[in-house]
Design a protein around this nucleic acid. Structure first.
Length: 854
DNA sequence: GTAGGGTTAG
């Protein structure tokens, strides 16, 4: 790979210096034989020579000779027209400037309409829309009347820079001049409106046209496809066929790309068979569109086959397949294609290098990454911002922060993307502090900057901060998008903030944010975690498409409720819809069985994994099974399973067994499991806590003391239990025995009142949940101040009758609080939801949705 | 003269 480049001087990560060698010597000026003195130029021969000029240097020399001989003048159809046309044709920025300078002359001769049209076209195709518009204005000032040729160029210029109001004025001029009947002008207007996001106006124009050609249809098809209305694009394509208009290769490219955007493989295939029906030959641009479509629709093998079979692959085709491989994270295939390209294909350009560098970033391939960097430097591609941004990203992902920073420092035009790449890299590097600082100091932030930071905060579990940042974003008038909402939904879910969650949904509707697979799944998960299964399922049912992750989220809703039947029903529905199960969905299923106490179904699912679905159980599935069996009291079977596992059991597996021992009060087995656990994960806080809890509930206080001492020696501390409740959009958090809340007195009185009413109803506190060796009265007191009780009491005070109380707890709810909540739900006629770190409990009229099994 | 394929960061 880059045979010659590997040993070339490249970027030095340590010194930050790089040396670029020039691969191509600057091209020497080729003087056509006809230019030599032996063959003197005349007015006629020079005109032909002008048209055939391929480089600016050639043109300049010719121009010079013609001036000497006085062969240039401003008469219509003169050589000056041809000079400008030729210069524009060359198409570089320099040649455009040259044309602009040759334009007027000092004698006050006016540039012709033809020259204006020529140069406006040149500016339009170079993307210099504003220059084109300026030239148009100048033309009007000079009293030159535009013609039907001016407008398509000018409108193309307006489209390129999305100059809506200017284009609308141009439309006005078109109408004034009575040119709306010109099919070229109308087609250009359709394209212009579509590009500026006003495809409806384009449609109106299209509908009013007396005569349409294939370009009119194609422009509108492409307009729909580009505005995320690909369904309309494809249906318009078939309407076009019905109207008897033959598509051409450009039309096919547009419609195939619409199928690609829809990721609708069936539709794509339908279009393919339509091509064969028409007997159309596949041109290179069509093959390229097909490769792209198959890739985007997920049929990578089909795409590769077409690619491999294509005899005349051009640069774009190589770039297409490579960039798609990058998006599918098939980075090693990118390098395989690159190899082929270097051997027998066109020379890699900046787009090729962009994909290559992105692939190196994914693979963490520093070696090819460096060579690519060298190639970029030698070929002068680093001026293109995208490339440098990709290089920064690559060095960051390869763990070369210094190298990334050096590239960053050397960049003359840092864009917001550059800063974003750096921030994202720092976040991945775990340097939140620096990422924050840079984000704070950024002069220009875009949506991605905000999304990166919100995502980063969610990743490090700073959920409140993530929501706070989103609020700041709102204050600055920046609306969130799909990606923002995925982050915020996730934060809401973890906080269990249902009011906020509902607000998120309203926000999405109000701002017309498209709920795609990812966002839909995030919303299902959010409502599930907020303890609102019906909203979760409502979102799920409204999702347009559902992949295995979406189904898993829905099955997760059932798992939270301990609804095994619901989970299995969903799973069967998923299979009917031909969605292939993966390992994760089985985790959700087994969790559902575990929470529902459905041992038989769990066993059945577990064994079906490999037999029916070809998925070998991972360690996590064994963990689920041990949990399922253990919870149901089948401790021996759980131990048998552990002993028969083909994989070495890990701390999670032993942890599940230990938790089961606690529930079923098997001190001996608990001791064994704890020993195994301590060997595997001595740092785990949970083991000590669980073991100490087990001893405590068995009244073995000396053992409790021993474990506590060990914990102290090892510096591990029990995670304090905390519960939160959302009241009027604010989250109130309580820890066990917390007296810091402003309403502490009220809460205390409320708890006393509750306890009185509960005692009358026959409630006796279950003090085995108190893990300290203190007297019974003290135990009762400690128990009565558990964080979830404080949160429930606060909820009763602050919310009106009939409003459900929702509490989120960071640890598992204790059995006493469970009985307490059941009775409160009955005596106070309130629905109460408690989501703990495992599942949620929905209390109503004295019963819990978990049917006391959890 | 009008329409078209590949482009970095979340």
């Amino acid at each position: 790979m880059f045979a010659g480049d590997m040993h070339s001087p490249i970027y030095n990560c340590i010194t930050g210096q790089y040396m670029a060698t020039t691969l191509f010597p600057s091209s020497t000026l080729l003087v056509p034989a006809s230019l030599k003195e032996a063959n003197p130029i005349t007015r006629n021969s020079s005109s032909k020579l002008l048209v055939n000029c391929k480089t600016l240097k050639e043109l300049k020399q010719l121009h010079c000779d013609m001036m000497k001989k006085g062969l240039l003048c401003h008469k219509p159809a003169s050589n000056l027209n041809k000079l400008i046309a030729s210069s524009v044709q060359i198409g570089t920025l320099e040649s455009l400037d040259y044309a602009r300078n040759a334009f007027g002359d000092d004698d006050g001769n006016m540039a012709s309409l033809f020259m204006y049209n020529c140069l406006i076209r040149g500016y339009a195709s170079a993307g210099l829309g504003d220059q084109a518009i300026l030239l148009y204005v100048q033309m009007l000032v000079m009293g030159i009347v535009p013609d039907k040729y001016t407008f398509p160029f000018l409108l193309s210029a307006c489209s390129k820079i999305l100059a809506l109001s200017e284009g609308v004025q141009v439309h006005g001029a078109v109408l004034k001049m009575g040119l709306e009947g010109d099919i070229f002008v109308s087609n250009s207007l359709i394209h212009f409106y579509a590009e500026c996001g006003k495809v409806d106006l384009g449609r109106k124009l299209f509908d009013g046209m007396l005569e349409r050609n294939v370009v009119s249809w194609t422009s509108l098809i492409n307009g729909y496809s580009g505005r995320d209305l690909s369904k309309e694009a494809v249906s318009l394509f078939f309407q076009m066929g019905e109207a008897g208009v033959e598509p051409n290769p450009v039309t096919m490219v547009c419609v195939i790309s619409a199928c690609a955007k829809l990721k609708d493989l069936e539709l794509g295939k339908k279009v393919c068979s339509y091509i064969s029906e028409l007997g159309m030959e596949l041109s290179t641009i069509m093959v390229n569109a097909l490769v792209d479509m198959y890739m985007k629709c997920g049929d990578i093998c089909a795409a590769r086959q077409i690619f491999d079979e294509c005899a005349n692959k051009n640069l774009v085709m190589y770039n297409t397949i490579m960039s798609n491989y990058v998006h599918h994270e098939w980075a090693s295939d990118v390098l395989v294609i690159l190899d082929e390209m270097l051997q027998k294909g066109p020379r890699p350009d900046k787009v090729t290098m962009l994909s290559t560098i992105a692939a190196c970033a994914q693979l963490g391939d520093l070696s090819v990454g460096k060579s690519s960097h060298a190639y970029v430097l030698r070929n002068g591609l680093e001026g293109w911002d995208n490339i440098s941004n990709a290089i920064i990203d690559m060095y960051m992902k390869c763990g070369k922060r210094e190298a990334a920073c050096k590239v960053f420092e050397h960049m003359p035009n840092k864009t917001v993307v550059t800063w974003n790449s750096l921030i994202a890299g720092l976040v991945r590097d775990g340097d939140m502090e620096l990422a924050w600082r840079i984000f704070d100091e950024m002069l220009e932030r875009d949506l991605v900057s905000w999304n990166t930071m919100i995502g980063a905060l969610v990743q490090v579990s700073m959920f409140e901060e993530a929501i706070e940042l989103f609020r700041e974003m709102q204050n600055q008038g920046i609306p969130g998008d799909r990606v923002t909402m995925v982050g915020i939904a996730s934060a809401c879910g973890y906080l269990g903030a249902l009011d906020l969650a509902k607000w998120v949904c309203t926000y999405i509707e109000k701002n017309d944010i498209h709920v795609d697979l990812q966002l839909g799944t995030a919303l299902v998960d959010m409502f599930s975690r907020c303890g609102d299964p019906s909203s979760a399922m409502h979102v799920f049912k409204r999702m347009e498409k559902r992949d295995v992750s979406a189904w898993t989220a829905a099955i997760g809703v059932m798992a939270m409720e301990g609804n095994t039947e619901g989970a299995i029903e969903l799973f069967n529905e998923m299979l009917e819809q031909k969605v292939k199960p993966d390992d994760v969905v089985f985790v959700a299923l087994l969790t559902a069985c575990s929470h529902g106490g459905s041992v038989d179904q769990g066993r059945q699912l577990f064994w079906s994994m490999e037999k029916a679905h070809g998925i070998r159980p991972h360690i996590v599935h064994y963990g689920c099974m041990v949990d399922l069996l253990g919870r149901a009291g089948l401790l021996e079977e759980a131990v048998d399973l552990i002993q028969s596992m083909p994989i070495e059991p890990n701390d999670v597996v032993w942890g599940s067994l230990l938790a089961a021992c606690r529930k079923h009060k098997n001190v001996e087995l608990a001791h064994y499991a704890a020993e195994k656990l301590t060997q595997l994960a001595p740092e785990r806080v949970g083991i000590h806590v669980l073991l100490s809890n087990i001893y405590a509930s068995a009244g073995k206080w000396t053992d409790v003391a021993r474990v506590r001492l060990q914990m102290k020696e090892k510096g591990v501390q029990k995670v304090p239990g905390s519960s939160s409740i959302e009241v009027q959009g604010l989250i109130h958090e309580f820890t066990s025995g917390d007296e810091s809340h402003a309403e502490n007195t009220h809460i205390g009185l409320m708890l006393e009142e509750i306890n009185c009413r509960l005692s009358e109803a026959g409630y006796v506190p279950d003090t085995t949940n108190v893990l300290l060796d203190v007297d019974e009265q003290e135990k009762e007191h400690l128990l009565s101040r558990h964080s979830e009780k404080l949160a429930m009491a606060y909820g009763l005070i602050t919310t009106g009758q009939g409003i459900p109380i929702r509490v989120v707890k960071n640890l598992r709810m204790c059995s006493d609080c469970h009985s307490f909540a059941k009775l409160v739900s009955k005596l106070y006629n309130r629905e109460i939801t408690v989501r703990d770190n495992n599942r949620y409990h929905f209390f109503k009229e004295g019963f819990c949705s978990c049917r006391d099994y959890w």
